[in-house]
C-alpha cells in the first residue's frame, strides 16, 4: 500500500448537469497521465464511473475533460504537469450537456459543424482528373494551417462566447468552414458564408483566443474566424451574401 505522500487526491464529478465532486485516493505513479488516473478510479475504486476514451495516444480526441479547470486531452496530460500539489479536479467538458459523470453529449457540437456547412461540396465527379493545387498557394496554406482539427471539443468547451450564446457555432465549426472556404475544389461557399455570418456565427467571436490557447493540436481557430469575418464582409459588400 502506497503511503500518503505517494497518493493523489482526485476529485471527480459524479452525476449529470446536477451532481457533486467525489474524492478518490489514487496511487501516484511515474509517467502517469490523467487518463490513467481516471481509469484507475473506474477499474479499482468505482466501476460505475462513466468516461470516454479510445486511442490513448492523442489521435482520436475522445478523452477530453476539464482538468483543474482547464479543458485538456487527458491521455496527453501528465499528472506531474498539472497536479504539482498532488490534487486533481476532474470535470466534464464545459458548454455541453453532461450525460453522466465525465461523459458529455457532443451531438449539439457536431450538429453545429453541419450547420456551418462543414461538409465538402464537390464541383467535379469521379470521372474528373485530379485537382492540381500548388502546395505553396495562399489558399492551400491557409487550409493547411487549420486542417488538422480532429473535433475533440476542447476549443468549444473553452469558449466563453459559446457559454454566453449557446446558439454560437463555436471555434471548431467555424475553423472547419474556413478550411473549406480555402478549398479550391469546393463549390459551396455562397451558402457556407451565409451560414457562418452574423450574431451566431463568426461575427460573435470576441477574439479572446482561448480556443487557440487550449487547442491540443496548436491550431488557431481565432485566426480562421478572423478570415471568415473578412470573407463574409467581402461577400456582403459584393452582393454575394
Amino acid at each position: 500500500m502506497a503511503d500518503m505522500a505517494s497518493m493523489l487526491d482526485v476529485s471527480v464529478w459524479r452525476g449529470a448537469d446536477e451532481g457533486r465532486f467525489v474524492s478518490y485516493p489514487v496511487p501516484r505513479r511515474e509517467n502517469q497521465t490523467v487518463l490513467d488516473v481516471v481509469t484507475y478510479v473506474q477499474r479499482r475504486l468505482d466501476a460505475t464511473l462513466a468516461y470516454r476514451f479510445s486511442c490513448r495516444v492523442g489521435m482520436c480526441g475522445s478523452c477530453a475533460m476539464t482538468v483543474n479547470g482547464v479543458a485538456r486531452w487527458t491521455c496527453r496530460t501528465h499528472v506531474g504537469r498539472v497536479a504539482k500539489d498532488g490534487r486533481l479536479r476532474i470535470a466534464p467538458l464545459r458548454n455541453m450537456p453532461v450525460i453522466k459523470d465525465l461523459s458529455v453529449d457532443m451531438a449539439g457540437f457536431f450538429a453545429k459543424a453541419a450547420r456551418a456547412k462543414g461538409a465538402f461540396r464537390p464541383t467535379a465527379d469521379r470521372t474528373a482528373d485530379f485537382a492540381v493545387i500548388a502546395p505553396d498557394s495562399p489558399r492551400r496554406r491557409r487550409a493547411d494551417a487549420a486542417i488538422e482539427c480532429i473535433g475533440c471539443g476542447v476549443c468549444y468547451a473553452s469558449c466563453d462566447v459559446v457559454t454566453w450564446n449557446p446558439d454560437y457555432l463555436g471555434p471548431a465549426a467555424l475553423n472547419r468552414a474556413w478550411t473549406l472556404v480555402n478549398d479550391e475544389r469546393d463549390g459551396g461557399n455562397r451558402e457556407r458564408l451565409a451560414a457562418v455570418a452574423g450574431d451566431a456565427g463568426c461575427h460573435a467571436c470576441h477574439s479572446h483566443q482561448s480556443c487557440m490557447e487550449r487547442c491540443p493540436k496548436h491550431l488557431n481557430p481565432t485566426e480562421s474566424i478572423a478570415g471568415l469575418k473578412r470573407a463574409t464582409v467581402l461577400a456582403a459588400l459584393t452582393g454575394k451574401l
Partner: peptide
C-alpha cells in the same frame, strides 16, 4: 436580422 445585415453592422 439577416446574415448580411449583421455582417454590415459588424463592419460599421
Amino acid at each position: 436580422m439577416s446574415a448580411r445585415a449583421e455582417t454590415l453592422l459588424w463592419l460599421a
